[in-house]
Design a protein around this nucleic acid. Structure first.
Lengths: 194, 194
DNA sequence: TACAGAACGACACGCTACGTGTCGTGTCAT
DNA sequence: ATGACACGACACGTAGCGTGTCGTTCTGTA
């Protein structure tokens, strides 16, 4: 019967058209209104072709977003950890804006309702990103910008927590100044662990 | 011409049955599998009765949760702000557990995909809860536990951020010890604002 | 207590999207 | 060249949506 399809014979044209259609439709009408049939129609592709390669609209969008962002946003390292954190958090906030039609925001929301999708997101995007953060933070600790006793897991929660708090409760995404103040607080807290 | 229905003639029996059915079904099968038809069947109620009073399954669940929690969880005030924050955050984490079938977690996730639902959640639950936090924090400032210069909006983001970071990215909800450490960090940061 | 009217349960309806199956056509590794 | 398989197209049964209709039951008010 239907064994797994052969990736070597896969149509690149169809793959790209599907990913493009998913992204543009999500940005136009939001994730809730996104349907497999809608994607198929805009991409000029059979539904069967989508179901052959993806199990859900969430995973289609995940691949689209992953492709779009290239590999996970790398952490800058200018030698100033606090400045680099500001840069990085502002970039991430940009990915979630505008919240109503951001494919990234939709993906994260859907992941909270779909454990399987969440696992894929974690593997493809979140885990590498966290690894990047920890590497950058350890570098800051080696240079003496932060005490060696500071815990990267705690720091991660505190640096990014405000963003997800705003996102989850729809409190409005933080602007640059709000980000700056919160990061400054976290830096103070981490330095106090010495 | 379906004018607005008359709340005075509303059947309390049906209302309670619907709310109970929504809660139990959500806990059994999760929010994604929750349907208006399923709620109607379990509640022994006509679909029409549900649609007469609620526009979506999300708003049904919101009312169920609001009723369940009575009025918004009040902030304790033992005179020890850090201890009270630990108590409060642990309670909130409990509301979100287990993430897969928690009606509260489902509601917050759905709110990220449905702006109208999010607005209702904010009015009925979030806004009063934030007001309670700010009141408790100002009390701590009056007593001198925190400097008067500490900003409640920043504090809110930092105290609750870690929880929503874990929730949104499915990193596993923090346990008591993890909460304790993060709150201690935030307290240090807020005290450093002096 | 009688009564009008509205909410109720039941059921049927058309619709959209789902996920699968079938069937020629086209395309690619060999 | 050729055979296998992914492709586009189209059809299918199903689930759930949101609405409409119709008696029946309940409730607030006269």
């Amino acid at each position: 019967m239907a064994g797994a399809p052969d990736p070597q014979r896969r149509s690149e044209r169809a793959r790209v058209a599907i990913l493009d259609a998913a992204l543009s439709l999500c940005r136009e009408t939001g994730f809730s209104a996104l349907t497999i049939e809608g994607i198929a129609e805009r991409a000029g592709v059979s539904k069967k072709t989508i179901y052959r390669w993806w199990p859900s609209k969430g995973t289609v969008l995940l691949d689209a977003v992953t492709e779009l962002a290239g590999r996970t946003a790398l952490f800058p390292d200018t030698g100033d950890f606090e400045r680099d954190m500001n840069t990085q958090v502002n970039i991430v906030v940009g990915l979630y804006s505008p919240q109503d039609t951001s494919p990234v925001a939709a993906l994260v929301a859907e992941g909270q309702l779909d454990a399987a999708l969440a696992a894929s997101i974690r593997e493809q995007v979140i885990a590498p990103s966290i690894a990047g953060f920890e590497e950058r933070m350890r570098s800051a600790q080696r240079v003496g910008e932060l005490p060696g006793s500071a815990d990267p897991a705690v720091a991660l929660d505190l640096f990014y927590g405000p963003l997800y708090h705003r996102l989850a409760l729809r409190l409005g995404l933080p602007d640059e100044e709000e980000i700056r103040v919160r990061i400054a607080h976290v830096m103070a807290a981490l330095r106090a662990t010495a």
